[in-house]
């Protein structure tokens, strides 16, 4: 498990990224920046890098984080830990992940309720068709709505007038 053609994000994807477009077009939120974090091999490193990403968001005084992954399987260890580390710091989390039928989270926790499944294939599998299970604008809008609802419910008492 890792990154198959259907979830792969090409250089073109990052150049015309729907998540950034949807978030930056929404005047209800203040987008501070984009954190790029890798997915190491070693388990201790996996926990370390995701935790550092969550601490970075906390230092930025983020109310919420939108997280995405470009693969599944062992990278779920990174993904779910980062969600948990954000949540435990009081930062609302929503995001995008390919799950389908074959790629349900290999580990879970209490902070994954707002993760949208980007699966588009009928079989819910890694189809090896490039772009098939990519996030779309609609997926991104759903994730942002979930985040906004969550931030409304769990106000950190900052960032509001």
């Amino acid at each position: 498990m890792g990154i198959g053609p259907s979830t792969k994000e090409t250089s073109l994807h990052h150049f015309q990224d729907p998540l950034l477009e949807v978030v930056s077009d929404d005047t209800d939120v203040d987008l501070m920046g984009i954190i790029i974090v890798g997915t190491p091999d070693d388990n201790v490193d996996k926990i370390r890098v995701g935790t550092r990403a969550a601490i970075m968001a906390d230092c930025m005084r983020a109310d919420g984080a939108l997280i995405s992954a470009d693969g599944w399987g062992n990278s779920d260890v990174d993904f779910t830990n980062t969600c948990e580390q954000l949540g435990r710091r009081g930062i609302c989390v929503a995001g995008l992940h390919f799950s389908g039928r074959t790629a349900q989270f290999v580990v879970t926790n209490d902070y994954l309720g707002n993760i949208i499944d980007t699966n588009k294939s009928e079989e819910g599998t890694e189809t090896t068709v490039l772009g098939e299970n990519n996030m779309t604008k609609l997926d991104c809008r759903k994730a942002l709505v979930r985040l906004k609802m969550d931030m409304k419910k769990h106000d950190r008492g900052r960032g509001t007038e």
Partner: peptide
Amino acid sequence: VERPGRKKIVIIRQVAGQGAMYDMYL
């Protein structure tokens, strides 16, 4: 654009980082 008073959010992109054809350049 910074929007003072609005909810502050970050996007976190988890990207490949384990080896051949599982890498990201910045």
